[in-house]
Simulated assay, not measured.
Amino acid sequence: MAEVDAVDSADDELLTIGAFAARARLSAKALRLYDRLGLLSPAHVDEVSGYRYYRADQVERARLVALLRQLDMPLARVAEVVEADGTDAAELLAAYWTDVETRIAGQRTLAEYLRARLSGRSSEMYGKFVVETVEVPEQVLITETRHTLADELPAWIGASLGRLEAAAEECGGVSGAPFVVYHSEVSMESDGPAEACVPVADEAAARAWAAGQGRARQTAVRVEPARTLAYTRITKAQVAHPQILAAFEAVERWVAAEGLRYAGPCREVYFADWGAAGAGDPVCDVAFPVEEAQSQ
């Protein structure tokens, strides 16, 4: 069948991909992509020529897809919106835009933080944090380790510590503040790993518990030696990114100024009821194990 600008059918007007693209104000390339992704399929494809034909009443959907893409909406979420009915579609769009605004607010705060660093005003940020040291005795830990990116980290911390605190009942009970150790950087480009840790009272019971877990969640038992921690205490509001970065950097600057060296990876120690805490309530210590630097 020769390609023509328009073809009549008994029910609907069929348009070639070129004519439909012009009416929808899209490119033929975009239409082929939308077809491949299942967002907008042609009404008819000629079996001999392979030419694609669209109904005139598909223009509305094509324009909707294009407008949603202008919001940088991922294609999977575009598919959800265009398949939903009016009210549901509007609610899906609203939920997406709430996510966007939350992300932009976080990026705005990060940009302000970076401006302060680049302009030499970083001391103003670090001055908010008081750094102290504390001696922590040897602890038996039940742990869960995971490679995770920054956007998944908060949910994983809550879930993993919840699982470990429940398991601690089999291990003599919780004997200290739970904490998370960062064995490598966790960001949107680096996935750690991070290790959730809960101190428990009974090492033998803990090892029996771990033996029954297998490797499903990378659980383990280890004995952490006594440590000196250099730490700063932060509020629930300061746990948010990037304020927590400034807290870590404040401790790092203090460690350097004191001539100490690191004796292990950094950690966050949680000592408060997160759900009950207000934005200004202390909830967490940002800490580094440290020791005296050896003389040359």
Rank of each mutant, 00 (worst) to 15 (best):
L92P: 02
A95E: 15
Y96V: 03
Y96I: 02
D99M: 04
V100Q: 14
T102I: 06
R103L: 06
R103H: 13
I104G: 02
G106T: 11
G106S: 10
Q107V: 10
R108T: 11
R108N: 11
T109I: 00
A111L: 15
Y113E: 07
R115N: 13
A116D: 14
A116T: 07
R117Y: 12
S119L: 13
G120L: 04
R121A: 15
S123Q: 07
E124C: 00
E124V: 12
Y126S: 01
Y126E: 03
G127V: 05
K128L: 13
E132N: 14
E132Q: 14
E132C: 07
T133M: 10
V134I: 13
E135Q: 14
P137V: 07
E138V: 03
L141K: 01
I142Y: 11
E144P: 11
E144S: 14
E144R: 14
R146H: 06
H147W: 11
L149M: 12
L149A: 13
E152A: 14
E152M: 11
L153D: 03
P154L: 11
P154M: 10
A155C: 03
W156F: 14
I157S: 13
S160Q: 14
S160N: 10
S160Y: 04
L161P: 08
R163K: 10
E165D: 10
E165H: 06
A167D: 12
A167K: 06
A168Q: 04
A168I: 03
A168C: 06
E170P: 01
C171M: 09
G173K: 03
G173H: 12
S175P: 04
A177M: 13
F179G: 01
V181W: 01
Y182E: 05
S184H: 09
V186I: 15
V186A: 13
S187C: 08
M188G: 00
M188Q: 09
E189L: 13
S190V: 06
D191H: 13
D191L: 01
P193V: 08
P193D: 07
A194K: 01
A194L: 03
E195V: 04
E195C: 06
E195Y: 01
V198H: 11
P199C: 09
P199N: 11
V200R: 05
A201F: 09
A204K: 05
A205H: 09
A206E: 10
A206N: 11
A206P: 00
R207C: 10
W209M: 08
A210R: 14
Q213G: 12
G214A: 07
G214D: 09
G214N: 05
G214M: 02
R215Y: 09
R217C: 06
Q218N: 15
Q218D: 15
A220F: 03
V221S: 02
R222S: 01
E224N: 03
E224G: 01
E224T: 01
A226Q: 02
T228M: 04
T228A: 05
L229H: 05
T232S: 08
T235M: 11
Q238S: 08
